[in-house]
């Protein structure tokens, strides 16, 4: 493994309960900076639950209890003084179903930087909207219709708009929960190409049920099974010679 590798998020012995049910049994994982890490595993293995722990999306679930450490650049994101809204500007999320705000394309991108006070309206905001849309590889498709509603775009464009919206607050980490499962193969390829570009500037974590997608886009892969992290390693190693039989069974389609 590359010794130059920098750890963006360090997770130690993270446990999570929904009421009495222990959904995650002590996860230890390093998420490397400027790399794409994929979480794979069968439904109910805990991969999405774990992803949502990474920007405290589970806080809203009353019965949910978390133990252990989730460090972002050395600071525990579950420390009492952490402002969750601020945290989510550092760790953004893109969801399965594209969910643009019912506002214009421009406003979709400008909204968060404005409410966080990062940029004021005017030329600075115009520039931020443009660079964010460019980074999300959608600028050329929308530059002439920035005032049109975001919801009028195609599914794949909406998803890239949501990525632009996430990028606009300049996060460190982008979490993606099945970002392509509602998209056709061409829109999927565009998002995958985009991820490859984005990882120059951002750390990306993606949950996907599509193992070929995990193989294509990620540098590291983590295999979750029944609330445990079974195996973590370089993606090419996981897909050619996994260490654990459970990983092997899953990625070769011998599961269940």
């Amino acid at each position: 493994m590359d010794t130059e590798m920098q750890t963006k998020m360090k997770i130690r012995d993270l446990k999570l309960w929904y009421g009495d049910f222990e959904a995650l049994h002590g996860i230890n994982l390093d998420v490397y900076s400027d790399k794409v890490t994929a979480f794979i595993g069968p439904s109910g293995c805990g991969k999405s639950t774990f992803l949502r722990c990474m920007n405290r999306m589970n806080d809203r679930i009353a019965s949910c209890r978390i133990e252990g450490q989730m460090l972002l650049e050395g600071s525990d994101i579950y420390a009492p003084e952490v402002d969750v809204v601020q945290l989510r500007t550092h760790v953004g999320m893109v969801f399965q179903k594209p969910n643009p705000f019912p506002k214009s394309i421009y406003e979709n991108v400008a909204y968060a930087p404005r409410i966080h006070g990062l940029v004021t309206d005017g030329p600075d905001m115009d520039e931020l909207v443009e660079t964010s849309l460019k980074k999300a590889s959608i600028w050329n498709e929308v530059k002439d219709k920035l005032q049109q509603p975001g919801t009028a775009l195609s599914g794949g464009q909406q998803q890239r708009l949501c990525i632009a919206r996430t990028i606009a607050v300049q996060p460190d980490v982008i979490l993606m929960d099945e970002p392509c499962s509602a998209l056709d193969p061409i829109a999927t390829a565009k998002i995958e190409e985009l991820m490859d570009e984005l990882k120059n500037d951002y750390t990306i974590v993606i949950v996907t049920h599509n193992m070929q997608q995990a193989a294509r886009v990620s540098d590291y892969t983590a295999y979750f099974y029944l609330g445990d992290l079974m195996e973590f390693g370089e993606t090419q190693q996981i897909f050619t010679a996994p260490t654990h039989q459970k990983t092997e069974d899953y990625i070769t389609g011998r599961f269940g």
């Binding site: 070929q212 897909f239 996994p242 990983t247």
Partner: peptide, 9 residues
């Protein structure tokens, strides 16, 4: 089939 792991090997 896009084989992986032991199948690919």
């Amino acid at each position: 089939r896009q084989p992986a792991a032991s199948d690919l090997r």
